[in-house]
Amino acid sequence: MEQKALCANNVRKQYKEKLALDGVSVTLEPGHIYGLIGRNGAGKTTLLAALTAQIPVTSGEVAYGGEPVWENEKALADLCFSREIGARADSGEAALKVKDYLRMGRLFYPHWDEEYAQALIKQFGLDVKQKIGRLSKGMQSMLTIVLALASRAPVTLLDEPVAGLDVVAREDFYRLLLDDHMATGRTFVISTHILEEGAAIFERVLILKEGKLIEDTPTDDLLARFCAVSGPAAAVEAACEGFPVLHREALGSHASFVVRAPAADITARGQAVELNALSLQKVFVALCGHEQEGQA
């Protein structure tokens, strides 16, 4: 399968009152799993829709393998954007049956793998005769996952696929995703705000904040920029001196800081402190949650 990169170049999307995307440029290289994270309303869905030409952009362009995606049958045939169903429960597809939805996939996605779809349906226990609107949130998520995986599209974008899933189903999903990724080398973009498993799955993280892409970084590199420092308060203070401290906790003479500094720089201070890496979730909170960076 020949693989091409999907690029957004300075994409802006202005809704009536809101600037949903503010000059986003990103290149999705083939063969990677990207995590698209951001708070609610940060523009995740808008970005995914713009990347697949489902909404017109205000300015900027999206290209696949160097060719514009807009109204480009060849490019669109290689892309799959599996939307979150639950978010639009009152719209048309709620009245469709599961099998009708999947039939659309079979009809519209040229790389569709019916055998795979059937196997996934069986595994998830989806009732194909049920109307989509009557499925539980978890089942709706599973339907979007079946659609995305079975599309076999070289570039597949999933919008909040794990939102309605419990931890067991999430692990199942990520296992399926990795198996498929290893077997086919497809590119995946997964938007989510549930980050527990993310660090292990996403090779790169894209972080959207208020319509701006603030990070497009390999997950490891992003995590390596932060560390948690704990130990005697004086030692922690000395070790973190001069670095932006994002979060501090003190309990008696023991202190624990989250600091934006590579672990090596802290170690170099020679203080007797314990260093730990941060989870992706904590890094995300540090980047998108705390506006008062550097303050006490």
């Binding site: 799993i33 990795l178 292990a200 090779e203 997950t219």
Partner: peptide, 17 residues
């Protein structure tokens, strides 16, 4: 790489790293 990725449920690129 793939065995590690499958068993530990991690991205194969990370295992490769």
């Amino acid at each position: 790489t793939n065995e590690l990725a499958r068993t530990l449920r991690i991205n194969p690129a990370t295992a490769a790293k």
